[in-house]
Design a protein around this nucleic acid. Sequence first.
RNA 1: GCCCCGAUGGUGUAGCCCGGCCCAUCAUCUCGGCCUGUCGAGCCGAGGACACGGAUUCAAAUUCCGUUCGGGGCGCCA
Length: 511
Amino acid sequence: MIENKGERDGMLGNWRRTHFCGDIWKYSYGRTVVVAGWVHDIRNLGGVAFLQIRDRTGSLQITLEKSTIPEIFDALVGLSRESVIMVEGTVTENPQAPRGFEIIPGKVKVLAESAVPLPLGVADKVFAELDTRLDNRFLDLRKREIYSIFKIKHEILDGMIRGLHGLGFVQVQTPKIVATATEGGTELFGVDYFDNKCYLNQSPQLYKQMLMGAGFDRIFEIGPVFRAEEHDTVRHLNEFISIDIEMSFADEWDAIDVLEKVVRIAVERASECRNEIESINDGRKTLNKLINKVNMNIGVQNKRIKKDNQRLKAAGEELKPLLKPKEKYDALDIKPIKKTVLSYMDNYNEEEAKKSGMPRVKYEECIDIAQRKRVAVEFGDDLSMEAMKTIEEVYPSYYFITHWPTEIKPFYVQPYENTPEVCRSFDLNFGSKEITSGAQRVHDISLLESNLVEKNLDPKNFDFYLAPFRFGMPPHSGWGLGLERLMMVLTGMRNVREVVLFPRDRYRVIP
RNA sequence: GCCCCGAUGGUGUAGCCCGGCCCAUCAUCUCGGCCUGUCGAGCCGAGGACACGGAUUCAAAUUCCGUUCGGGGCGCCA
């Protein structure tokens, strides 16, 4: 055991947390605990005050009785919301308290007072818009329903890493600063690299393939990728996390099997986060517009009642009661938003899923579905959002699209040997949302070169890419999964920015 | 890149169509006061906003033009 020989005389002194707020239950009744966190709310009733302290696990009630602990009462009731405190106290059972118990403090420490007003209320009863929230993300992230998103992200990443590890994949890291585009096509961000011009990598594709040539056999990488495209939608970012795998001696069906396993693990791990899912649901079940409508209605009525009461008071008559918030909120007919992860898991039967799996749907069938709904598409077109919406009606959950036309896929995708007009490329979708794309890659150098020519690309510009293929490249397949896209599906978020701590889009680089 | 829409206190909004009844609505919030069981606390009082620039008009939050910032849809993609 390592002894801490330093003197503990700083602000914290010898104070150390013994419990998170959410970790105190019946077994702790009667014990002395130390909790640390933010002042969520204080309700001061005069002789007694109730302070809600909050950490990442939840909140609990500190009860302050003025007559018994006047110093502590005075020290805490004047604090602003979101100040940081530590409280040592006794966990006391009390059926009147919110969770059946409360903390009666013995000692308290104020570590940081918060300025007022807050640019974004953490405990406020109005919902700020996403842009306001992102501008003040450090406050936004204090909300439990927002933190829950990132807890779920942590859980699914842990699950997927373990799953890939179990399947024999080795985790690697590849450069994000590169000299040239690895795939061509997309716009890249330029970087001043000493005296040269470099780029932020759009995909680890080339490096993954080099490692196949190096005999690493099965690798995965979880890292950022950068796209300089000027898209501006609820599902695009200019920096996002890609989970990439590549495997040797494998065709696209092997890669699909790995993907299905990994996604199923992610879904299962997310569905185990019951508390987090619940808090996301709770945080969203009311809608601003509805609240405002009702508030306005009742606020105006109350104002009228108050005016009447002034008159009645002067006449010595009985006063009318004001409308209470309880009635106000009861007037709202609000149904919780059902989260996708739950609706998927409600119908999810592990045995059934293992048997049937996620459907493999041929591109051709997708075209059929869209055409039957009178969407103007034909073989060879990319699937537009309009077309995807019709396919979503038939396949509302996870499914793969296979057998894509070779001509709309990149030069490095392996065509089918007997039907070269279709290729070994696949997408994983959830409804109309694309989550992953992958393929068996071309490993034969002469085919690569002729493909380049066919796509009107000059093989000379791809020397850097082609070199490893000259010296023994095994057949290989892989995919890249957009972590944020998967998170959107799992948490039911409509905007990809919700599932990124500090999103980078076309207009936002701060904070 | 294309098309549509918007900007009112710290936050979320009403008012805008039909200019004057607006030194601007309601809630939340902040501050002060009362209250010993709150738990979406309550009650009393106070505070705080028409994005910026120009035009029309006797009169502009409201109409028009420009700028800036934001939202939605599509394209492309993950």
